[in-house]
């Protein structure tokens, strides 16, 4: 292994150590599935490794791969009816809201998670999802309208 490769290797491992848990949590909020979340994060780092030297800021890149993979996985499973979400926090208000979040269309859920968990501005979410900012805002409105109506 060359010195450059060793440094690169070290760098990606540092990022992995620092960011893996946060990214798994993000993936879980997007998918609601623990095992899948770990797989998505692993896949994201696998995608990043080959072009690590070209990635200026790894975290947005990794987020984008994870969101894309989560959406892709959801679409591939569209034939299967969604299972009733299980309580995860055993706080009734939290678990009920979480269940409703999982029932949102995956695109809307992704916007909600990126906005309110990652605290990303809509312009950044639009860039991450490769969609117009106004469309992302529309998705956010629809999601909030749905949640407001159901949770009221």
């Amino acid at each position: 292994m060359s010195r450059a490769n060793a440094a690169q290797r070290s760098d990606i491992e540092d990022v992995y150590s620092a960011e893996r848990l946060g990214l798994v949590r993000l993936a879980f909020l997007l998918t609601g599935e623990r095992d899948l979340s770990e797989d998505l994060v692993q896949t994201a780092f696998a995608a990043a490794q080959g072009r690590w030297a070209d990635i200026d800021d790894p975290l947005p890149y990794l987020r984008r791969v994870i969101v894309n993979q989560a959406n892709e996985t959801h679409r591939q499973r569209y034939r299967h009816p969604p299972e009733e979400p299980e309580p995860v926090t055993h706080q009734p208000d939290i678990d009920e809201t979480w269940a409703e979040l999982l029932r949102l269309p995956v695109r809307q859920r992704a916007v909600v998670v990126l906005r309110f968990y990652e605290d990303l501005p809509l312009t950044e979410i639009a860039r991450l999802l490769d969609r117009p900012a106004a469309t992302v805002r529309s998705d956010l409105h629809r999601a909030l309208d749905t949640l407001r109506r159901i949770l009221r």
């Binding site: 095992d35 692993q42 995608a47 490794q49 072009r51 791969v65 894309n68 959406n71």
Partner: peptide, 22 residues
Amino acid sequence: EPGDAAAPLARVGSSSPTSSPS
């Protein structure tokens, strides 16, 4: 979490994503 703590960077280079921004 079971299966989480011991998750190394094991699959790097061994899989090819289908939705990376490339």
